[in-house]
Design a protein around this nucleic acid. Structure first.
Length: 573
RNA sequence: UGGGGCGUCGCCAAGCGGUAAGGCACCGGGUUUUGGUCCCGGCAUUCGCAGGUUCGAAUCCUGCCGCCCCAGCCA
């Protein structure tokens, strides 16, 4: 038996187009024999949680390695002990694994290379290509010049190799206070590229490192670490984001002067998304001020947030393939991510019926204590998921929005005198309703047609609408959390005031929702479709018999569009 | 007004001298026991602008214009 799976095949990649520019380079390198097999790496700094932007970098690095039968390492770029923590190295590994990637036994830390890096620094010093500078940070800045004016040489620039070596060794030995000296590359203070104006290679920093403890009081800078780490690991293609483009000359200068294996750095554009902000500092503030519940708040653009929200890892991977790899700064429409999430969930999420805003429906001609077990398909996209029994009885919960006393045009649901189908149940015809003093509908009454059991009409009679329902006597009360964009502006990162850009309605908590009987037993993290409403997943806050669901994303809603059009039409007269 | 990048549909993105792929979004129509899915159709005479080369240019040349990155002892 074959599943009736539609379009997106398991093996089908959601490519944006032909091979992108990095793939072209890889293909050429493989064809020319420059490399027998490619080797990439994902090099996060363990100073925070991974977000959607990192997801793209992960997919690019691990994805390319996989596609071209190469390898991808995970390497923590941990050269700044003041910012890095073990908590993050654990979380990062967890997130990458969850995304579906594996570095096997190739887990590395730049800090593992400190001794080698130090030796290379001495080599540079001995060859007159690096010197110890006594200038203060402010003085170095002043000597650096500006974008349009060249810098000035440090007065310490011409110390002898012997003196530099002695000083550098004493730096390591801890003879000088923090910040009193640095090691600099001797390149060109007049270079148009500011990164080449004698960049700092080492600084004195007495801080406890999460891995090397207090072994070192001098730490290498990014520029003096990254390329060499790539070299040590024989990385063939070192992929990074655009802002490192100006660092490439330095990257190359170092591998050249150190005479070590030269990986090739290639830069591509980082991922930006509309209505989303990944600025670590600002995100941290949201967490600290309690605007969100934590780094895993389902509204957060973090991998943990998306995970709790219910985004399947495959959806994120597809999304990353879909947006492509290029050098243009771009901002991808959030709708594209949501499309990928729906696509994945449509194929794999089991269907269930849940009433979010309950309204009692009484079937007047249905026997008082009769209960029927109706067959309901678990997933129309996947026959092998089978079906389940859903109890049907005289009193049901239906969605408030599925009844209107005075419906507008094109409204296909229940209203006085109108017949609709109760999904997998019966055809029912509205016979009346009750209101309270406030004018709210409190109950709807109807009669059913026994001949339409299961929802089919033997006489071929058609109804325009099909609504979902839950047997009142069998309902599982639950909490449902609805999410919307955290921000109301397309580019929150550019907002002067983050607080003002926040969407006050980004979270809506619904209590007293009524789920079908099967929802009494769910597993944390389980992803479901609540028919006609959207995709939901079981939140860790769930308790036995009292599930809490997060709305991952709503179903596409053409009725909402019609309503919007009708409202717009009225406005314009 | 230094250096390095980038400009193809509302948003991504192919295109690599032979006469503008694809996806998202949007708009129509069909199927449908989810107003979901799926299916069909529409959606850039034009590639930041202006010149030039060529039988022929989004693709080559020149000059403009616009946007992004770099002046951490951050990565």
């Amino acid at each position: 038996m074959s599943d009736k799976t539609n379009k997106p095949d398991e093996n089908e990649r959601a490519d944006a187009g032909g091979p992108h520019f990095i793939e072209q380079i890889i293909q050429e390198d493989l064809a020319s024999g420059k490399h027998e097999r490619i080797h990439t790496r994902f090099p996060p700094e363990p100073n925070g949680y991974l977000h959607i932007g990192h997801a793209k970098a992960i997919c690019v690095n691990f994805g390319l390695a996989k596609k071209y039968d190469g390898l991808c390492n995970l390497r923590f770029d941990d050269t700044n002990p003041t910012k890095e923590e073990t908590e993050y190295v654990d979380a990062i590994q967890d997130d990458i694994r969850w995304l579906g990637f594996d570095w096997e036994d190739r887990l590395y830390y730049a800090s593992d290379y400190f001794e080698q890096l130090y030796a290379w620094a001495e080599k540079l010093i001995q060859e007159g290509r690096a010197y110890v500078d006594d200038l203060s940070a402010d003085e170095i800045r002043a000597h650096r010049g500006t974008l349009t004016e060249p810098g000035k040489n440090s007065p310490y620039r011409d110390r002898s190799a012997e003196e530099n070596l002695d000083l550098f060794r004493r730096m390591r030995a801890g003879e000088f206070p923090d910040g009193s000296k640095v090691l600099r590359a001797k390149i060109d203070m007049a270079s148009g590229n500011i990164n080449m104006r004698d960049p700092v290679l080492y600084r004195i920093l007495r801080a406890h490192h999460h891995r090397t403890g207090d072994d070192w009081c001098i730490y290498p800078m990014y520029d003096f670490t990254h390329g060499q780490s790539d070299s040590i690991e024989k990385i063939t293609h070192s992929l990074c984001t655009l802002e490192f483009e100006a660092h490439r000359p330095l990257y190359d200068w170092l591998t050249e002067n150190l005479e070590i294996y030269p990986p090739r750095q290639i830069e591509f554009a980082r991922l930006n998304m509309s209505y989303t902000m990944v600025t670590k500092r600002k995100l941290l503030k949201l967490v600290q001020e309690g605007t969100v519940s934590g780094w895993d708040d389902p509204r957060m653009p973090t991998i943990r947030g998306m995970r709790r929200r219910g985004y399947p890892p495959a959806a994120i991977r597809n999304f990353c393939d879909m947006v492509g790899v290029a050098k243009v700064n771009s901002t991808v429409d959030l709708a594209m991510l949501e499309y990928c999430v729906r696509q994945e969930l449509n194929l794999h999420a089991l269907r269930r019926m849940t009433v979010l805003h309950p309204l009692k429906l009484v079937i007047e001609n249905y026997p008082e204590d009769q209960v029927e077990e109706m067959d309901a398909v678990n997933n129309p996209e996947k026959e092998s998921d089978g079906s389940r029994k859903v109890p049907f009885s005289r009193e049901l919960w239906i969605e408030k929005a599925d009844f209107m006393e005075d419906p507008p045009k094109k409204y296909f649901r229940l209203s006085p005198g109108r017949e609709v189908r109760l999904r997998y149940g019966y055809f029912v015809t509205c016979t009346g309703f009750e209101k309270n003093d406030a004018g709210e509908i409190t109950e709807v009454r109807c009669t059913y047609d026994p001949a339409t059991r299961g929802g089919d009409s033997p006489d071929g009679r058609r109804v325009k609408g099909t609504i979902h329902w839950v047997s009142a006597a069998h309902a599982v009360p639950c909490e449902v959390r609805l999410y919307d964009n955290l921000f109301t502006v397309p580019d929150p990162a550019a907002a002067e005031d983050v607080q003002a850009a926040l969407n006050p309605d980004s979270l809506q908590v619904l209590t007293g929702c009524m789920g079908e009987r099967s929802l009494g037993e769910v597993e944390e993290g389980q992803r479901l479709q609540f028919e006609r409403q959207g995709y939901f997943c079981v939140d860790p806050d769930s308790k036995p018999g009292a599930p809490v669901f997060n709305r991952t994303v709503g179903l596409r809603d053409s009725w909402a569009k019609i309503q919007k059009q009708q409202a717009g039409g009225k406005k314009k007269g």
